[in-house]
Simulated assay, not measured.
Amino acid sequence: MTDLIPFFDGHNDFLLRLMMSPAPREETWLGSGGKGHLDLKRMKAGGFAGGLFAIFVPPQSKGPPPDFGALMANPPYDLPMPPLMTHDVAQPIALRMAGLLQWMERAAPQDFKLCRSMSDIAAAMAQDVIAGVMHMEGAEAIGPDLDALYLFHDIGLRSLGPVWSRPTIFGHGVPMAFPGTPDIGPGLTEKGKDLVRLCNDLGVVIDLSHMNEAGFNDVAALSSAPLVASHSNAFAQAASPRNLTDRQLHQIRDSGGLVGFNYATFYLNADGRARTDMGWDVLLRHMDYLIAQLGEDHVALGSDFDGCIIPDLIGDVTGVQAFLSELSRHGYDAELLFKLARGNWLSCLGRILH
């Protein structure tokens, strides 16, 4: 398989890297320095046809960010949950990141478009323009009255995860721990249930990645939309609280939703380690399992580029084609590769976005 297979990716944290980079933003987005996992040139070269770009407000602490690779190198580990963040702290940072996503379009209008509808996505991909969809990972910026959701929706928000791995006024996330279970803590708050209803009304994807099991159950009972976990893997293959149990996978399948395959090494390695020198067999076994539990129509890609430690065999966005080639050698035919690469994401988004 030599031709590029265009793919749609369910999760990346490029906006955070763009905001935090000491280099000029033009260099980070348009340059070819090779830092991080994404930039426009490598995305075009690697077949990145579209994806969800996360607005993520990092924990506000003094000093350098934690070295998750070192902290998660030798299980067992159980990292402390960051404290709840209020909307008055989160909202200015989230708006800045939303502005950066719109700037990315203005800086490269022939190559990148911020998409607000399925017709936008289809038109962009047909013209070989990267289709960017605004996502929010952790809804701290929305606030208790939910009014800001209307604002973010107006400027492009089409996917929202109520929690990251810390509590919010809407629900509870899972810790970065191994081994561990997603069955920890209470479910959605009343404000969280209101958030789910409003997302349904607006046609905004509700992302279940990072949410604990009780919250997952509440969304499944309440939401009228397909269930989506944009960047999660299978608990049976790696016992991380961030991974999904078979019961959760089956509920997602039965709702017509999907799971985006996460490249994070500590959610792929059976021993929970962050090591990156794994063989393709680890990824293939995990993908086989997801397809066995969910079916071919409910598995997609959710890399977590620029937000996690990924296998050396992938390296950055240009390595996705090597993964797809390995899936082909493993026996996945062209129809299944199309579904995994972009077909399933586009079908699922088409069932949710208004």
Rank of each mutant, 00 (worst) to 15 (best):
D128Y: 01
T318W: 01
Q60V: 15
T245M: 10
S325L: 05
D316I: 00
K339R: 13
D111Y: 08
A264V: 12
G279H: 03
I93W: 10
L149N: 07
M176S: 15
V320H: 01
P182N: 05
D194F: 09
I252C: 12
D218G: 05
N262A: 09
R242V: 07
D304Q: 08
L101G: 01
R351S: 14
V317S: 06
W164E: 02
K41Y: 05
K41P: 09
M176V: 13
E335N: 15
G51Q: 03
E26I: 00
D281F: 00
R106L: 15
T318V: 08
K113G: 02
W164Y: 11
A148E: 07
A45V: 03
I206H: 03
G187T: 06
M104I: 05
P66K: 10
G10D: 00
L30D: 08
T28K: 14
R197A: 13
F152D: 02
K113R: 15
Q321T: 02
E137Q: 12
S347G: 15
L101N: 02
P175A: 13
K113M: 13
K339D: 00
T245V: 08
L208H: 11
I252G: 12
D271Y: 08
K44F: 00
P75W: 02
G34C: 01
S303R: 02
S230I: 03
K191F: 12
V282L: 04
G99N: 10
H153T: 04
L337R: 14
P109L: 06
L294S: 14
